[in-house]
């Protein structure tokens, strides 16, 4: 942001008050649109909605333990099929991103230099996410497909 506002309203009355010109109507420069800041925000919303709707279903399917062992086992059996197994991989990927990027948001909000490093933090989030997915994916796929 241009900082042509120093002393406004406070200091000498001789110098005319300088107000920054309106921002030119182009998407560039200091705007974060199209860059890491925007994509982390977009991904945070999309993963958040996906996790929310899974949570609704997951509370209901777990509530079946109160109905009968048979009812619970039939429904939880669906989670062990190949297609749902791949869905769980996507779900875990969404949860890990939302969790790590949530910690990034907290750092941007509360860490004194968090905003300055928000881009590096985003790439750190992606790096840690990739490492955790590399660890989780074979383990889960063996459980789903290996029997």
């Amino acid at each position: 942001m241009p900082a042509k506002v120093a002393g406004a309203g406070a200091s000498s009355s001789s110098a005319p008050l300088s107000v920054p010109a309106p921002r030119p109507p182009v998407i560039a420069g200091t705007l974060y649109r199209g860059r890491e800041g925007m994509w982390s925000w977009v991904l945070h919303r999309i993963t958040g909605v996906a996790i929310y709707f899974f949570l609704l279903v997951h509370i209901l399917d777990t509530a079946l333990v109160r109905v009968s062992p048979e009812a619970y086992n039939i429904v939880i059996g669906a989670y062990k099929t190949p297609i749902m197994g791949l869905g769980e991989l996507a779900l875990v990927g969404a949860i890990l991103f939302h969790a790590l990027n949530g910690l990034r948001i907290i750092l941007v909000d509360f860490w004194s230099v968090g905003t300055r490093h928000q881009r590096a933090l985003f790439w750190t989030v992606l790096g840690v996410w990739a490492a955790m997915m590399i660890a989780f994916t074979p383990r889960h796929l063996i459980a789903v497909f290996g029997g």
């Binding site: 086992n73 989670y79 062990k80 769980e88 383990r139 889960h140 063996i142």
Partner: peptide, 22 residues
Amino acid sequence: FGHLFVNLVAGEGVKQIDFAFV
């Protein structure tokens, strides 16, 4: 992370989850 580890990583992973496990 604890929930995912206990249910999907430890033991036999997703295949272990049934009424008796819960």
